[in-house]
Amino acid sequence: MSKRFKSLLTPIIAVLLGIIVGTIIMVVSGYNPVTAFTALWNGSFGDIYYIGEVVRQFTPYILAGLAVAFAFRVGLFNIGVEGQFLVGWLAAVWVGVAFDLPRIIHLPLAVLAAMVAGALWAFIPGLLKARFRVHEVIVTIMMNYVALHVSNYIIKNIITDNKDKTDLVKESATLRSDWLQSITDYSRLHWGIVIAIIGCFVMWFLLERTTRGFELRSVGFNQHAAHYAGMNVNKNIILSMVIAGGFAGLAGAMEGLGTFGYATVKGGFTGVGFDGIAVALLGGNTSLGVFFSAILFGALKVGALNMPLEAGVPNELVDIIIALIVFFVASSYIIRVFLDRISKKEVK
């Protein structure tokens, strides 16, 4: 079995194991797994509306996944995607409501604002890591809380007058499209998917084809050798966080300019940033892998909504299945050992 094939097979087996264990749980708790999974399928791909919703859902997942994967490739664990996502969301909406500009300037400006906000938010842990070797996991987790409460404050006290929700972004800054909505039976599908796909390409190109990517990958694999070879390790650490934060900020723009068109005061985290960790993990931290695993997560998330309606299964169960899939991916080591056993037998 080739290495490539194995690394492809591992996530697939992880997903299957998640579904199998999910089935067992459903049988045990008295639900019919066949109807349940049919409902899940129908709810994600059974209708053009659902397909539109799935695409809408996985768009931010792709970008959040890239934000985790990119940092990971440089040897950093970016747990702060949620916070970078929230400040990106806020920045996009702020620009979207505050200005009146032609669409050709306004929309790119709002998207850019999200990217810059996310990048700045990630710059702080990157700087602390590079300068003082403060562990990025701790800083990014704390920055998530700061992002949540600061953006709530800004929405409440600065953008609006003590309201829980901003106005809709101006027509000239929205990613929404009547045409996309009309062909998908009025789902909330928007143009963000184009940005997400470009994001995947940018990550691949940057890492695999440029001298900068060569440095980033070197630092990720062996900081000492990178230093020896004359690369600036600290600069690359900061840069990787900044780029990762940029991706996360864009994910926020997807929600702020696309799905919702506004920003609200939130009681807690949205979870998109944390799901991004799972997406990146399942996708093996490559841009193509992130793309496909985001689709899977998006489909599960949207399809889950149909399970209570069509099969009477509580959607908490779907959360459990997703959790199980992540669990099996995280323990992919076991699957890999298993695959190694099989391929050894084949040789004999």
Binding site: F221, Y228, M231
Partner: peptide, 27 residues
């Protein structure tokens, strides 16, 4: 000076620990 500056001034270095400094083993 930085390692790059030194390298580019005309110094070649075969490091003592080839795994730590000399190579990126996963490249």
């Amino acid at each position: 000076q930085t390692p790059r500056k030194i390298t580019e001034s005309g110094v070649g270095h075969i490091p003592q620990d080839r795994h730590k400094h000399g190579l990126v083993l996963n490249f």
